[in-house]
Nucleic acid binder design. Structure first.
Length: 463
DNA sequence: CCACGTACACCC
DNA sequence: AAACGGGTGTACGTGG
């Protein structure tokens, strides 16, 4: 012991460089081979979105008429719906959709916010809000994805993006030129873009996904008995949390879900299920993600509100502190330990010894210090999860290279807990089984089974 | 004219 | 004065 520091607690960083180094062959192969794009499909999609964009623009113009009159001192400025500044002036100064209510403001400039959340509030007040939201989506899809992807494919329609294993502080990969880790998936139209990513001729795309890997790392590190049992029994962790919080029986919930999914539930039970899903499971699921990120009661209240669940801050506080951590007390202790480590040493590290420096954790400014502590609280799980993924990639690549002698078998993308390969149809099943077991066994966790799921399809959007 | 900060939006 | 961790990219608007 010296100066309050236990030498035994100093992390061993020697494995980190090896992990990053050993995943490079697969990363390089991803860059070199690239992923195939269906360019005619993308062009048709682009045309479709351009049409919708033009419609939305003309409707916006007809709705606002001369409502927008901005005089810059010499001329009237045309309204630009892509400018948040113009949108704010239109809605809150000319149309005054807020009436006498206060409007959410932007963080740094002193101006009304026009983000999606804000526009949703005033959707009922003026039809232009929804049109502006639609237009935003079209502009986003066209300028960030459709046009860029078409412009950047090589002469054989393959996209070669760069992956950097050393950019993110937690060891996650970063992708640029273009970024293929943020291709849309949540909205219907956005998901169409994912369908432009296709397998090579005679091949299929095989995805290998580590399920709930950060949660499993949290279970491993905390050794929380309830969490361990959830994963050992193969339960749905959010259902388990919900049951313990609301005093429901797990098996009752599971059988209800089965009946609803099989469409054999009575109308009464369907109503009960909908209530369960929105007002019980959703809050518990949100907390489950949120706690690993250090989400506060205020943040939880906010994110639930966007899902139509209007809880008070006090109710959120009680859900997090009393109810959630009441179910998983050892998880709370682990997070507390990590926060203490950050406050004491201004750093934190994961089980592989990947260190993150958080000097701000020692700041005298509470806000800055808490920011550092939140970063530290999440680091061991995010970095640990990435360790599993990178080690899996390192072990899998030589096996793929062997197969690739006779049949096409190429890695194409990694998205944090997901590894995508372009594989000859004739050996897709065989490859999938190998990849699944490699990722599953890459890093044994104590008392926690790791599970990887596989998907096979010709288009990425179908996975 | 370009560089940069900001707002917003997409992903895990 | 924030209120959720980790990223990239685009358009706008301002200031050098």
């Amino acid at each position: 012991m010296y100066g309050g520091v236990h030498f035994s607690s100093v992390p061993d960083i020697s494995n980190v460089a090896r992990i990053d180094h050993n995943c490079l062959p697969m990363v390089a192969a991803m860059h070199r081979y690239g992923i195939r794009l269906d360019v005619p499909f993308l062009i048709a999609l682009g045309t479709k979105i351009e049409t919708r964009k033009a419609e939305a623009e003309s409707q916006i113009r007809s709705h606002i008429g001369n409502a927008y009159q901005d005089y810059n001192g010499s001329t009237y400025q045309p309204f630009n719906p892509a400018s948040p500044h113009h949108v704010a002036r239109l809605l809150f100064h000319h149309l005054r959709v807020q009436g006498n209510d206060p409007v959410p403001m932007t963080k740094k400039s002193n101006r009304e916010s026009t983000d999606e959340e804000t526009l949703q509030i005033y959707k009922a007040k003026h039809p232009v809000c929804e049109l502006l939201l639609d237009l935003r989506e079209y502009n986003k899809l066209l300028s960030t994805y459709v046009r860029v992807l078409i412009a950047k494919v090589d002469s054989n329609s393959y996209m070669h993006t760069q992956f950097s294993p050393t950019t993110a502080a937690t060891g996650r990969l970063a992708s640029r030129g273009p970024n293929l880790m943020n291709i849309p998936v949540r909205s219907k139209l956005g998901r169409e873009i994912r369908n432009a990513f296709i397998a090579s001729p005679g091949c299929v795309l095989v995805s290998t996904d580590l399920s709930q890997i950060e949660m499993r790392w949290a279970a491993h590190r905390s050794q929380d008995p309830t969490m361990l049992r959830v994963f050992q029994r193969g339960e749905d962790i959010h259902n388990r949390t919900t049951c313990n919080v609301f005093g429901l029986k797990y098996e009752d919930v599971a059988s209800m879900v089965r009946r609803v999914e099989a469409k054999t539930a009575s109308p009464d039970e369907v109503l009960k299920y909908k209530h369960f899903k929105q007002f019980q499971r959703l809050p518990c699921k949100t907390v489950g993600f949120g706690v690993l990120y250090g989400q506060t009661a205020k943040g939880l209240r906010q994110s639930l509100a966007t899902e139509g669940v209007e809880w008070t801050e006090e109710e959120c506080q009680s859900l997090i502190e009393t109810k959630f951590f009441g179910v998983y007390p050892k998880l709370k202790e682990m997070l507390q330990r990590d926060h203490d480590t950050a406050k004491r040493y201004a750093m934190i590290w994961d089980d592989f010894g990947r260190v993150r420096l958080v000097p701000e954790a020692k700041s005298s400014h509470k806000r800055i210090a808490e920011e550092g502590i939140r970063k530290a609280g999440n680091h061991p799980e995010q970095a640990g999860a990435q360790g599993t993924e990178k080690i899996g990639m390192a072990m899998l690549h030589p096996l793929m290279a062997d197969i690739n002698q006779d049949y096409r078998c190429r890695p194409v993308l990694q998205i944090h807990d997901d590894c995508l390969a372009d594989v000859d149809k004739r050996i897709a099943e065989e490859y999938a089984a190998i990849a699944q077991s490699v990722f599953r066994d890459a890093t044994p966790l104590i008392g926690v089974p790791v599970e990887s799921s596989i998907g096979i399809a010709e288009r990425w959007g179908e996975l």
